[in-house]
Simulated scan of single mutants.
Amino acid sequence: MKKTAFATSMLLASSLFLPAQAAEYVIDTEKAHAFIDFRIQHLGFSWMSGRFNEFSGNFFWDADNPEASSIEVVINTNSIDTNFAERDRHLRSDDFLDVSRYPEARFVSTSVEVNEDGTMKMTGDFTLHGVTNPLVIDVEKVGEGTDPWGGYRVGFHGETSFTIADYGIDVTRLGPGSQEVYLVLSVEGIRQ
């Protein structure tokens, strides 16, 4: 029994030092290890924060050749949550997201550029409210390695912003401070 436990612990310990492999990953939304948060100014007086509670996606990560990496994320727009039910209903209406017509938003990467400091710029097509535009996300790898359950994970943090009018959503009545949406993406993937 001691030999088996020792062999198992040695195998697990040695796997922590294995080189990373290029592989497909599924974003771990099932156990809430990934988040899509946003913020936008409210009438120029304060910041309104929220999140999308339901999304899914997968990505390909190659630590030796990050430029070959890619990701696709699909967001359930009906899952918007600003911690105020009445506002959430309004955001789901045709005044804003119009979730009955556009139930999904989607980001599909088209290229990755590695900066000198190891951070990355990921360019892709972002579709929201039936409109697709190019979007650049500033990405930082948080870490990767074997998890306590014998799987292998890698995580990233990304930030971007976009002008809401570019997606056919008219919020001019909310004032000039409420035109830009800031997104923060925390993505943890499980190697398949």
Results as ranks from 00 to 15, higher is better:
M1F: 13
A5I: 00
F6D: 11
F6A: 13
A7W: 08
T8E: 12
S9G: 10
L12M: 14
L12G: 12
S14K: 06
L18S: 14
A20T: 02
V26D: 13
E30L: 13
A34K: 05
A34V: 04
F35H: 10
F35E: 09
F35D: 13
I36T: 08
D37G: 10
D37R: 05
Q41I: 03
G44W: 03
G50C: 05
R51H: 04
F52H: 11
F52M: 11
N53P: 03
E54R: 10
E54A: 12
F55S: 07
S56H: 03
G57W: 03
D64W: 01
N65M: 12
N65H: 12
E67F: 09
A68E: 07
S69D: 00
S69A: 14
S70P: 00
I71M: 13
E72G: 06
N76D: 14
N76I: 00
T77A: 13
I80W: 06
I80N: 06
D81N: 15
D81H: 06
N83C: 04
E86R: 02
R87L: 15
D88I: 03
D88H: 07
R89E: 14
L91Q: 02
R92I: 03
F96Y: 15
D98N: 15
S100Y: 07
R101V: 06
A105N: 04
V108W: 01
T110I: 08
V114R: 02
V114Q: 11
N115I: 09
E116T: 12
E116Y: 09
M120D: 00
T127R: 01
L128Q: 06
H129Q: 08
G130R: 00
V131S: 07
V131D: 07
T132R: 06
L135Y: 04
I137H: 05
G145W: 00
G145T: 10
T146N: 01
P148C: 10
W149M: 14
R153K: 07
G158A: 15
S161G: 07
S161N: 08
D166H: 02
Y167I: 00
D170A: 08
T172W: 02
L174C: 12
G175R: 03
G177A: 15
Y182P: 00
L183Q: 06
L185C: 11
V187M: 14
V187N: 01
